[in-house]
């Protein structure tokens, strides 16, 4: 496997992008989960689908755009979707969750139209829906690197504000933190991570890499920083095991990565159950 990675550029791209996503998706995912925004990640991934499908359609029908990387329009759609979700959440103050089905169905709706308009990119589309080991280009990898730099800088710079905002947003506002702006930037960064992760995990499964490792970490961690560290470890383990099995068994990496993360979650849940019973037994 190691030899193959050194030999083939597509494997270098896939593993490079996968390893980076294995860090940034669970890292941002911790904040998404504790802020109860998991479904927003799903809505944004479907909006990204519309952008990708639109780009694939445009590249077929407009000659100048034939070389355009679909990720760019995917990123634009995802960021636009995050802004729209925020607008809708303000508009429906008492029914904030309404923004999610509206944007999610809009994403699928536009996606379906573009897919039907353009014929013959079913292979590409399959890769975008469920991830692909072979389709990650050097340009895709560079985009993922750029997104990772933005995400890491954002988290490092605003870590303390994000922590306070996640724990208690009313307190964050009352203490004078620029909660609104930080939340807005957070949504944009989330959109970027979703668009960036999609090449490896696929649109339909991208939100799972942001939530399942976090769900496992939360069961065993004792502090917020430990939750972040464990989420990244679980995320990275899922990506590595998922990519290797996808390569050897010729499967969609989105599926293998997510199934690995589910297995890890199950192991953690079993471990926790045993640990609790042992502790109870010791006390009794």
């Amino acid at each position: 496997m190691i030899d193959a990675i050194f030999t083939y550029e597509f494997l270098q791209n896939a593993f490079g992008a996968g390893l980076i996503i294995g860090v940034i998706a669970p890292l941002l995912g911790v904040f998404i989960v504790v802020r109860r925004l998991s479904l927003i990640a799903d809505a944004l991934s479907h909006v990204t689908l519309a952008g990708i499908a639109g780009s694939l359609y445009l590249s077929q029908s407009v000659a100048v755009l034939s070389a355009l990387n679909p990720l760019f329009l995917g990123i634009a759609a995802s960021v636009g979707g995050s802004v729209l979700i925020e607008r809708l959440r303000t508009l429906y103050k008492h029914y904030e969750e309404l923004a999610i089905p509206i944007i999610l169905s809009a994403g699928i709706g536009f996606g379906a139209i573009f897919i039907s308009l353009a014929q013959g990119f079913s292979n590409d589309l399959f890769g975008y829906l469920f991830g692909s080991v072979s389709a990650v280009s050097r340009e895709d990898l560079l985009i993922v690197v750029a997104i990772a730099i933005v995400v890491l800088a954002f988290i490092v710079i605003f870590f303390k504000e994000l922590f306070v905002l996640s724990f208690d947003d009313e307190y964050a506002k009352a203490s004078g933190l620029p909660a609104k702006w930080i939340h807005f930037m957070f949504m944009i960064v989330t959109a970027l991570v979703i668009a960036g992760s999609m090449r490896i995990v696929g649109i339909l499964l991208v939100s799972s890499l942001m939530t399942i490792p976090v769900a496992a970490a939360m069961r065993v961690s004792k502090s917020f920083k430990q939750t972040i560290a464990l989420s990244i470890i679980f995320g990275e383990a899922s990506v590595i095991a998922g990519l290797i099995s996808a390569f050897y068994f010729d499967l969609a990496p989105g599926g293998t990565i997510v199934v690995t993360s589910i297995l890890l979650l199950l192991l953690v849940l079993i471990y926790k159950k045993i640990a609790v019973s042992v502790k109870r037994g010791a006390i009794a």
């Binding site: 109860r36 303390k160 009313e170 964050a172 970490a217 939360m218 004792k222 502090s223 917020f224």
Partner: peptide, 20 residues
Amino acid sequence: SFNSGFPATVEEVVAGGLAK
């Protein structure tokens, strides 16, 4: 206000009061 079940220690929560 408090997000119950939040995975943080007392130390981390109190330190958050210094953010502003």
